[in-house]
Design a protein around this nucleic acid. Structure first.
Length: 482
RNA sequence: GUCCCCAUCGUCUAGAGGCCUAGGACACAACCCUUUCACGGUUGCGACCGGGGUUCGAAUCCCCGUGGGGACGCCA
């Protein structure tokens, strides 16, 4: 009986939790993969275990280096750093070949040379007989020897009787009849292992204790457990996560467009907001919605994950993102905002410090991208005015408040929020008008629009020089209209 | 076709037989606050898929329907 080096199991660390995230590099890290990675990471962290990253690149046709990089970038951005890895399956080809031939020697696997056409015919026949399409096991008892052949594969001799039972940590007890399983290919004709075989060898070699993955893998689990048995290894615990569906209730997949994790960065989401959202999608802790990283690690238990699929809701992600925009330290948010400001092509030097912008705008936007867009007015010359805003607020009546505000702003001692605010209130008092008569024309003068943060902030961020010249421009405009 | 899984407000969920005239959050509506837009506050709208059981008692347990999802590759 082939057996993997048993001494690894005596490693004291082998008893502690080891999880792995094992994406195939065929695209970017999408939201479903990110959640799987998060849950693996969380489970390992809480139990003081190890989180391993493994790249399943055995499909040479579809795997790309760019995709590997995209996955790595996504995980780094989210802060889900692996303790071990990345380990590439293509570096382990010899190991799979070795284990497969040991299985053949032990009578648990066999060579087969069926053509594609023959296999297709078997499937069709099985379907016609009312069963599921499958390989009929015709080479199983032939004892074919190894030889060069374009159709040479190694197949697993799956048990034909009995059933496989396992206790899934999220789905509960699952029983699968062996009669439903056919003899799966272990080594393909190109010499590379198939997914089901490589995973088992790797999880065994890497002493993975908890396999956490999407529930599209539940039906691979029974055959993998049979493989463990044939290898004389103890299967890990399994936890199959329900799928994440699109807002339309259909499967959320790569074809849904911009679902790569890095796209969320570009769209202005904070990595922690994504993590928090993903944690709450399929898991909960009472009525709590906001979780710090520490709280997640502390409270998350894979056993508490829900059993049903959930839909991805951008509105709630946006709400969560704003919660973090509001509660986090402005300086740390500013770091992220700066990325967007630069990305948008603004010259940061000619505008206010980003942290000041964060304070002014964080109650008003849900994403950093919106924040950067709204901040444009302080980083670029005022290009044009909104017509409706002009006709409503840059009227003859606005001339006095504007002129008075200009004079007071010009003589404000320190250009700070408090002094600007009181100076502007003095305008209203002096002229005997409400703040609306002062603030709105001023807002239009500074921003060209009717919408902006509170007027003191709006003026403050413009800087004294810009504020005064924009007021002058507005005053000039009123004169022209006259 | 065959096998597997799932099922509480529009969405994410709480609920592990009585605490449920079903709670929270997002979204939506109204009002309050207010210099705009927001934020915040208050209130409202809104769900146990259907049918049978079991039980004194079921959102919770069982069965059958129905609906949804997944899988059946020399993809992962």
């Amino acid at each position: 009986m082939p057996r993997y080096n048993g001494e690894l199991h005596t490693d004291p660390d082998a008893m502690s939790c080891r999880t792995r995230f094992a994406p195939s590099p065929t695209g970017f890290l999408h939201i479903g993969g990110a959640r799987t990675a998060l849950y693996c990471w969380l489970e390992a962290r809480r139990r003081g275990g190890t989180f391993v990253l493994r790249i399943e690149d055995t499909d040479r046709e579809r795997s790309t280096d760019a995709a590997v990089q995209a996955i790595l970038d996504g995980m780094t951005w989210l802060g889900l750093e692996a303790d071990e890895g990345p380990i590439y399956q293509t570096d382990r080809t010899d190991r799979y070949t070795q284990v497969a031939s040991e299985l053949v020697q032990a009578g648990r696997a066999y060579y087969a040379y069926d053509t594609r056409e023959e296999i297709d015919a078997m499937r069709a026949a099985a379907m016609a007989a009312g069963g599921k399409p499958r390989y009929d096991g015709r080479a199983r008892e032939l004892g074919l020897s190894d030889r060069a052949d374009p159709n040479r594969v190694i197949r697993f001799r799956n048990p034909s009787a009995g059933s496989v039972v396992f206790e899934d940590k999220v789905k509960g007890r699952i029983e699968w009849s062996n009669a439903e399983l056919d003899d799966l290919v272990l080594i393909r004709s190109d010499g590379f292992p198939t997914y089901n075989f490589a995973v088992v060898v790797d999880d065994m070699d890497m002493r993975i204790t908890d396999v956490v993955r999407g529930d599209d893998h539940v039906n691979n689990t029974p055959r993998q457990i049979n493989l463990y048995e044939a290898l004389g290894a103890t299967p890990p615990a399994f936890a199959h996560l329900p799928m994440i569906l699109g807002s339309d209730g259909t499967k959320l997949s790569k074809r849904h467009g911009a679902v790569g994790v890095m796209q969320y960065r570009d769209d202005g989401y904070l990595p922690h907001a994504i993590l928090n959202y993903l944690a709450r999608l399929g898991w909960s802790h009472g009525d709590q919605e906001i979780f710090s990283r520490e709280q997640m690690v502390d409270l998350f238990r894979i056993e508490d994950v829900n059993q049903s699929a959930a839909r991805f809701d951008l509105a709630k992600l946006g709400w969560l993102n704003q919660q973090y925009l509001k509660q986090d330290d402005p300086a740390s948010i500013a770091v992220h905002l700066e990325w967007h400001l630069v990305h948008a092509g603004y010259d940061i030097e000619r505008g206010p410090p980003p942290a000041d912008v964060v304070v002014a705008l964080r109650d008003r936007v849900q994403t950093l991208k919106e924040m950067a867009e709204r901040a444009e007015v302080w980083y670029r010359p005022l290009a044009d005015y909104d017509e409706a805003a002009v006709s409503k607020h840059l009227t003859r009546d606005a001339r006095a408040p504007l002129a008075d505000a200009r004079a007071r702003l010009a003589s404000v001692g320190t250009w700070c929020l408090e002094d600007i605010s009181s100076a502007l209130h003095d305008v209203g008092t002096a002229l005997g008008v409400g703040m609306g008569k002062v603030a709105q024309p001023l807002r239009v003068a500074i921003t060209g629009t009717q919408v902006s943060p509170d007027i003191a902030h709006t003026v403050f961020l413009a800087g004294r020089e810009q504020a005064l010249s924009r007021i002058d421009a507005a005053l000039a405009r009123i004169r022209v209209v006259d």
